[in-house]
Amino acid sequence: MSVREIRVFGDPVLRERATPVDATSPTTAALVQDLLDTVRLPGRAGVAACQIGVAKAAFSYNVDGEIGYVLNPRIDEVRGEPELVDEGCLSVPELGFPTPRHPFCRVIGVDTAGEELVLEGEGLMAQMLQHEMAHLDGRLYLQALDKEMRSIAMAEVRKAAWY
């Protein structure tokens, strides 16, 4: 398959709520391979399907040397009070802002055989899970920022060369 181009802020597909996939279809297998190929590049912790132009409920991840994917995920549990963590997004290139994230997150979904997958973790894994799940809801991390930080972030977006 192939590494796909990342859609950036302003692309309408990033605002679409993802629809479920047929986990066992050949089309889904091809999407998963593209997601895995795309997330393998250095500096990428996760890639949601919408970021490669497909509004489907799927994402890949590359955290601490572990590469994988999940289909039709849902958040099962978050734990702890949200903490501010430095966060960026491939769809908002070159920028990063302190974003509130729970220190633990568990997501349940399926693989391409339709078997249940459970992804959970703390630190970067928890942050990535919450970030990618927001993408599947049609939201960028900028929307999780408090009002003052969001104003600063949007001013930076408008000044960015890619905007």
Rank of each mutant, 00 (worst) to 15 (best):
V8S: 08
G121K: 01
L119H: 01
V13S: 07
V118D: 02
P73V: 12
G10H: 13
C50Y: 10
A30R: 14
A153D: 00
T112H: 09
E115S: 15
E66W: 02
T38K: 05
A18S: 14
T19L: 11
Q127P: 04
R40K: 10
Y163M: 09
T99L: 07
D11N: 06
A153K: 02
G123L: 04
T28G: 04
L140M: 12
E66T: 11
D146I: 12
G65E: 02
R44I: 15
C105R: 01
M149G: 09
I108S: 03
E83Y: 14
H102P: 02
P98S: 08
G138P: 00
I75Q: 06
L129H: 02
V8C: 11
A18M: 08
D22K: 15
Q127D: 04
G46Q: 02
A23K: 05
E83S: 13
E120N: 12
H102E: 04
I75R: 07
V54E: 03
L117Y: 14
D37P: 03
I108K: 01
M149L: 13
A45T: 11
H135W: 06
R101L: 12
F9T: 01
A23Q: 02
E16N: 08
G138A: 03
R106N: 08
S2Q: 08
L41T: 10
L124M: 10
A55W: 02
L140A: 09
M149Y: 11
A55R: 04
R15Q: 07
G138I: 00
G88W: 09
V78M: 13
M128Y: 06
A48H: 11
L142A: 07
N72P: 01
F59W: 02
E16C: 10
M125I: 13
T27S: 08
M125H: 09
Y141D: 00
V157W: 03
A30T: 14
E115L: 15
C50I: 08
E16D: 08
E5L: 14
V32W: 13
G65T: 03
S25M: 09
I108H: 03
V70R: 04
G53E: 06
P98N: 09
A126M: 00
P100Y: 14
